[in-house]
Amino acid sequence: MKKNLINIAVLLISGLTWLNAQSPDPQEILAAVDRNLNFETDFSCRFTMVTYRAGETPETQEMTLFSRPESVGGEEKFLAIVIKPDVDKGTGYLMQGENFWIYDPESRRFSHSTARDSVQDSDVNNDDLGTANFVEDYRIMGMTEGMLGKIDCWILDLEAKTESVDYNRIKVWVGKQELIPYKEEDYSLTGTLMRTVLAPKWSLIEGKYIYRQVFFKDELREGNRTVLVFDQVSLNSLPNHLFTKAYLEESSR
């Protein structure tokens, strides 16, 4: 009898351990995603953005992006400058903490904006270029498992803790192996699916996962989508003067 009890206890403990190993804490998964996406160093890259609009010729733009995390600069900063096509060349975006400016090289004027506006009328929000903060901004409502093509994923159902984020509810497909998001569905406050984001290609640079290609699909407007391709990625430190209006003006000349 005693032996049986011990056997049952051993079975229970190993069963729980197995369960635990199979279903890790969703909060930890989310924290790992944040860690994997965010850098503790400066970041720069060049990205190509192709915007598809129904019935229109696709528009291609190339931009240079520099970013600095809060842990390095005291506040989150990023600067993006359009380098192609010529008609938009020099248009710049500068974020310093809560402040966001758009620079128009033609009028040589800055306009104060919100980080929520879209980048060059695409399906990419300015916020998408900043730091991911899933743990801080969202609470986990549920977690299931599923396959995304051949990728085994945790599917996290998240609800916003605050209205200061773009979407009230998001569903994130996190690869079990690398703990990076491969897919995201963004829902409005009324529960309507607004946007689907797919990130099939990643690079591992200095222990950090970096997007190589991201697809944004507008779920409200038929045929609207945007593709981002990142290259020339660097984690080298950047000079302070890069994140200033003066630099933006100077580099737009």
């Binding site: 200061s164 773009d166 979407y167 409005s188 009324t190 309507t192």
Partner: peptide, 15 residues
């Protein structure tokens, strides 16, 4: 038709 806007705090909304 759909009407897309943002809540006053900035969250996307559609109806």
């Amino acid at each position: 038709i759909l009407l897309k806007t943002r809540t006053q705090q900035g969250m996307q909304n559609v109806t």
